[in-house]
Amino acid sequence: MAQTRTIEILVGAFMAAGIVALFFLAMHVSNLSATKGGGGYLLKARFDNVGSLKERAPVTIAGVRIGRVESISFDKGTYEALVTLRVERDYDNLPNDTFANVFTSGLLGEQYIALDPGGSTEYLHDGDTIGHTQSALVLEQMIGQFLYNKAGESSQ
């Protein structure tokens, strides 16, 4: 009987350790603690070019993440990229003249959306569209522009 008891205790400890490890992976290693399921509200934004922005990319204000990119689609009518953002419910006071930029984290990092709040007293609500957007900077265009300017300078 004593042996059964030991086995029971050890099996219990094993199961507990396994579950703790899973919990650790879920809460501490992965981003589960940061996503709150399907909560929050949706905003839309149109961009001429989203670069390599991916679904589930972060949406930040002042470097703090407040949401995620929900979906990216192509608008056949306007030839623009239509990006849907899911913003957490706590941040419900975004002015309606907020500016949306596609930025890159670091030189080689992935792209994210940075919101720049304006000064309006009207707030954005679920389903609203952000009017002011700036597209992603594409490296080739930047280099091209840089070379063009340099060429212009030297010819003067």
Partner: peptide
């Protein structure tokens, strides 16, 4: 170390798929 971890490892994509 921990911050990048939490930002980049996705629960559904990575942890659930691993399980």
């Amino acid at each position: 170390y921990w911050g990048q971890l939490q930002a980049k490892i996705d629960f559904r994509e990575d942890v659930v798929n691993g399980v």
